[in-house]
């Protein structure tokens, strides 16, 4: 079972090695395997959304970063608002501090396809737990249609913002998953756990920064 560390602008210095490993694994996955991004000379993958507004959930097992998620408030510039807004023809682009965009999830090759109790489901559990802790209402964003049945298997409800679309030979859809106790309970039941997967070290930064309480974290 993975432990999932919450990493953001205020405690990132505690995770220098893990964060670097995360960026290298991202490069492996998004550049070499998915070919979504051009190679970077330093072998690390970063994009314009890796800013201080992002919170990273790093799934660590046996000292390795085996999976990850990046969460960004949709009130900030994020992938759907900047790149995929045309895919939200039904509901428009959500822009709410309590709706998080979930991107940059990979699973290292030797931890893939381990059934419904595997690393991916463990990460999903941690994301749902974090989202509930932080008072979020929804998490999601642009996703490969192929993987959508996984949400169904977790008994999660994913609301589409628009139709599925083909882009560069792959099919995507923008959808947001409802955050609630039932969603956490169902994924925990599948994993057979009743405990937290999250680890919080150092200074914690609340995910939701309502405009009037915004901290300067630069």
């Amino acid at each position: 079972m993975i432990k999932v560390h919450v990493v953001n602008a205020l405690n990132k210095h505690l995770y220098e090695n893990e964060f670097d490993e995360f960026l290298r694994r991202r490069h492996d996955f998004f550049v070499h395997q998915k070919r979504w991004r051009p190679p970077s000379p330093d072998g690390r993958e970063l994009d314009q959304f890796d800013t201080d507004t992002a919170t990273y959930l790093l799934g660590i097992e046996d000292g390795r970063v085996v999976t990850s998620a990046r969460l960004i408030p949709t009130s900030e510039p994020h992938m759907v608002s900047e790149v995929f807004s045309h895919m939200c023809e039904k509901s428009g682009v959500p822009r709410r501090p309590d709706w998080a965009e979930w991107t940059r999830t990979f699973v290292v090759p030797d931890k893939r396809s381990t059934g419904l109790r595997g690393t991916l489901t463990q990460l999903c559990c941690a994301v749902m737990e974090y989202a509930l802790d932080e008072g979020l209402a929804a998490v999601g964003g642009v996703q490969e249609t192929y993987f959508m049945p996984h949400h169904g298997a977790l008994k999660w409800r994913a609301e589409p913002m628009g139709m599925a679309r083909e882009q560069n030979g792959e099919w995507y859809i923008v959808a947001y998953i409802h955050v609630n106790e039932a969603a956490l309970a169902s994924v925990r039941k599948i994993l057979g756990i009743d405990y937290s997967l999250l680890v919080r070290r150092g200074t914690q930064l609340p995910f939701i920064q309502w405009p009037e309480t915004r901290l300067d974290v630069a």
Binding site: L116, M148, G152, A153, A158, E166
Partner: peptide
């Protein structure tokens, strides 16, 4: 095509949700 794929994906999700684990 876009309409059909969208419905297929949601039908697939629902089936996974209905199958008991």
């Amino acid at each position: 095509q876009v309409q059909l794929v969208t419905m297929a994906v949601y039908a697939g999700m629902s089936i996974q949700a209905l199958s008991n684990n």
